[in-house]
Amino acid sequence: MLVRKVASDRDRAAFARLFDALMPRVKAYVLRLGADDASAEEVAQEVMLLMWRKADSFDPARAAVTTWIFTIARNKRIDLLRRERRPAVDPDDPALLPDAPPAADQLVEQANSEERLRTAMRGLPPEQARLIAMAFFEDRSHSAIAAATNLPLGTVKSRIRLAIERLRRSIPD
């Protein structure tokens, strides 16, 4: 586990491999959201530095590496480019209402869920996949999507709900 090596051994070679795999994709994500090349490079580099500093907060039982990096990149972009604070859930918050611990077989299933989610995403009807992509890559809330596509708000909501329902059925709870 590369992130584990970064966290526990401060392993630079492991970090460099993560950098090579993730930096170009994080930059691509920020570019897709409309940043210019220099800003996208800056945000992506900040994300890589946070990956180094926060490696010990990564919990493989909770999320895949790409999911973890996505949340860091999303928050960093909001922070640096939208100039807003990104409120987040703190998993160690004493106010948190805890979830029932996942059963052992669910953890095994979790390991395969990335591939299943990808397959389910490819199988979405194009009109649903498009709205999901707009939410993630165009910084548009569902009401802004309705305005941009000239679709009735109710149609946008029902398409999003159908897509989420379908994707959720593909992965373990």
Binding site: M23, P24, R25, V26, K27, A28, Y29, L31, R32, A40, E41, A44, R62, A63, A64, V65, T66, T67, W68, I69, F70, T71, A73, R74, V89, D90, D93, A95, L96, L97, P98, D99, A100, S113, E114, L117, R118, M121, I132, A133, F136, F137, I164, L167, R168, I171, D173
Partner: peptide, 29 residues
């Protein structure tokens, strides 16, 4: 923070964000 059920949903959506990033053509750095 107060709703485990919605937390699971949101986590699944973040997982979707992760897979979408993975599928992007890598940008030149």
């Amino acid at each position: 923070t107060l709703c485990p059920e919605c937390r699971r949903k949101a986590a699944a959506m973040e997982q979707l964000g992760g897979t979408l990033i993975e599928e992007l053509p890598p940008a030149a750095i």
